[in-house]
């Protein structure tokens, strides 16, 4: 229990690291990976020193936040919905999550489901492409050096910026939303995979060579497991940025989902619902990340 927390705590910083780290590493040949061994980082991280007090502190921060919010909504801006109002709205949605009154009025559970399905599809496709490319680039320095500048340029572009072009090209908002997620999922995984593969210890590759392993079994039995922790760290950040990108994509494209929901409520000027949507987006994001935390743990190794 206490072991799982430091890594969850470290998520925001890990998620923030890759774009700057990767760009800074542009001069060197190797890409910077964020954190190839989550448990190792966790072991040396906050957890040890904080002990058990973090829960109290965490709860305190939450209460403080709610108090300030309540204060603002009562004396600062009376039109701004306070926590209680938002909770009531939340209850309204959450108590009946799966109703279907036609395409523009569906339960929040369906909306979350649509967003997750969109995320899963785009993310899976993006990840497969990114891992395959990453392995190829990680094994081939020349190719890596040749393509790295373009990767750096591409990853600097927000996937949302592609949207008009994509929409113009594919002429379909559903596909465009998927492609935005796809693009958002690519770069951290690609960079981390290339880094992880490139940094696999020479001795493991020597063993593979002595065992005369065919290329494919070398990739699946040595290279991918060896780079596993780095790859999962990349996937985790990719998942984060895909989730971040999906909201504006759905909002702008009008694709049914959480992003559409938040924008729709804004158009209705229902701020309490907007706040509820924001919180829900955050909650789903955290749950997705926890999933990856578990995956990262199962793939981690100490040498």
């Amino acid at each position: 229990m206490s072991n799982s927390n430091p890594s969850t705590l470290s998520v925001p910083s890990a998620a923030a690291a890759p774009p700057s780290g990767g760009a800074a590493a542009g001069k060197r040949i190797v890409l910077k990976a964020v954190d190839s061994g989550p448990p190792r980082a966790a072991a040396g991280g906050l957890g040890q020193r904080v002990g058990g007090n973090w829960m109290v502190l965490s709860l305190f921060c939450l209460l403080l936040f709610l108090a300030l919010w309540q204060l603002y909504s009562t004396v600062g801006n009376e039109k701004f919905p306070g926590p209680v109002v938002v909770a009531e709205h939340a209850w309204y949605f959450l108590s009946d999550p799966f109703y279907d009154n036609g395409p523009n009025d569906q339960g929040i559970g369906f909306l979350v489901g649509f967003s997750l399905a969109r995320l899963a599809t785009g993310f899976l496709a993006g990840s497969v492409v990114a891992v395959v490319l990453g392995v190829i680039l990680g094994l081939n320095r020349t190719l890596f050096k040749a393509l790295n500048p373009y990767i750096q340029v591409l990853r600097a572009i927000s996937p949302i910026a592609w949207m008009p072009l994509l929409l113009y090209t594919v002429q379909n908002s559903g596909w465009t939303a998927l492609l935005v997620v796809f693009m958002a999922s690519m770069w951290p995984t690609l960079a981390n995979t290339a880094f992880g593969v490139n940094n696999i210890k020479k001795e493991y590759l020597n063993v593979a060579a002595i065992l005369q392993m065919p290329t494919m079994s070398k990739v699946f039995r040595v290279i991918l497991p060896g780079a596993g922790p780095a790859i999962v760290a990349g996937l985790r950040i990719s998942m984060g940025s895909a989730w971040v990108a999906i909201v504006p994509a759905e909002a702008l494209l009008g694709s049914l989902g959480l992003g559409y929901f938040v924008w729709n409520e804004w158009n209705n000027l229902d701020i309490a619902n907007v706040i509820f949507a924001i919180l829900l987006i955050g909650a789903v994001g955290v749950m997705l990340d926890m999933l990856f935390n578990r995956l990262a743990k199962s793939l981690a190794y100490t040498d």
Binding site: E203, Y204, N206, V207, A209, I210, L211, Q212, V222, P225, G226, G228, L299, Y301, T302, D303
Partner: peptide
């Protein structure tokens, strides 16, 4: 001409796959 199963090496630093 290249490494092979006919010449197995036992390495000074073991060179075991740590994930296995």
């Amino acid at each position: 001409v290249k490494p092979g199963l006919d010449r197995m090496v036992v390495f000074q630093n073991f060179a075991l796959m740590p994930w296995l």
